[in-house]
């Protein structure tokens, strides 16, 4: 457990910043909800004036936008984007920082197996993501309840909120795999941002051209909010796709890390 706690401690500050930032943006956005719904008809008119392709790209759905869940789901697109960056930063950084900081020699000359190092680090990253999600969900739940006027389904709300964690899991696993595949990672953010934005752009383009096949490629579209709001559940097909990806990525990262030569410090 020593490595696990060491990592939790090392990421304490950045985790607090991520939690506060994610929650603050969401709360701020939710506080705008009453302004949008004060005059539904004229806002609807305004929004329908925007070309459909543009609306789709922004993730605005006219049926749902004026319900608290539709509104929450809309702003959630951006929460997912930010959350993906956090998760992938963790996945890439928590392993590659030993290499970048040249501390691998220290760590791996201790009586500890590489399997244990990897397991401790990945579970520390996972724990950080769970803590972030709990904090975020509670904070936005309080805000959503405060501004919601109609009936409020806790299940719907939690289902939407949990998408953050599910998408983060994808990027956590992707980051872990890349951190052992890319030989020299000098800057974590240089790996994370291009990857996250590539997936995000794919999902935006898919939405604009109305191609549903991109849903199989990008985690940002695994969980369709309109579907969740309508059916109160996720689409299992995509959950399974994600699960398979995560299992492959994490297994690969363990196998490669165990076999890898540690780069010499000098």
């Amino acid at each position: 457990m020593n490595i696990f706690w060491r990592e939790i401690k090392a990421y304490r500050k950045s985790t607090i910043i991520w939690m506060l930032a994610l929650s603050a943006i969401t709360i701020l956005f939710l506080l705008l909800y009453p302004a949008f719904t004060k005059d539904v008809e004229s806002t609807r008119k305004l929004l329908s004036g925007i070309p459909a392709a543009y609306r789709n790209a922004l993730g605005i759905s006219l049926e749902n936008f004026f319900t608290i869940f539709g509104f929450y789901a809309y702003l959630f697109t951006f929460v997912l984007l930010a959350g993906a960056v956090q998760a992938m930063n963790l996945g890439v950084g928590i392993i590659s920082k030993e290499d970048a900081g040249k501390t691998s020699d220290f760590l791996l000359s201790k009586p500890v197996t590489r399997t244990k190092v990897m397991a401790s680090k990945l579970s520390a990253a996972l724990a950080i993501l769970i803590i972030t999600n709990i904090f975020f969900t509670v904070a936005s739940l309080i805000a959503a309840k405060a501004v919601s006027t109609g009936s409020f389904s806790l299940k719907k709300f939690l289902l939407i909120s949990l998408v953050l964690f599910l998408v983060q899991l994808f990027f956590w696993a992707l980051g872990a795999a890349l951190s052992v595949i890319i030989p020299k990672i000098k800057s974590v953010i240089a790996v994370t941002l291009p990857a996250v934005f590539a997936f995000f752009i794919i999902s935006t383009i898919g939405a604009v051209i109305g191609n549903d096949n991109v849903r199989y490629i990008t985690p940002f579209k695994f969980y369709d909010f309109a579907y969740i709001i309508a059916h109160n559940t996720y689409e299992w097909k995509f959950m399974i796709i994600e699960a398979i990806f995560i299992i492959i990525a994490i297994t690969a990262s363990f196998i490669i890390y165990i076999k890898k030569d540690v780069r010499a410090a000098s």
Partner: peptide
């Protein structure tokens, strides 16, 4: 083990 160049967590 004492390596020739030492690096620790800053």
């Amino acid at each position: 083990y004492l390596p020739s160049e030492v690096f620790y967590y800053d």
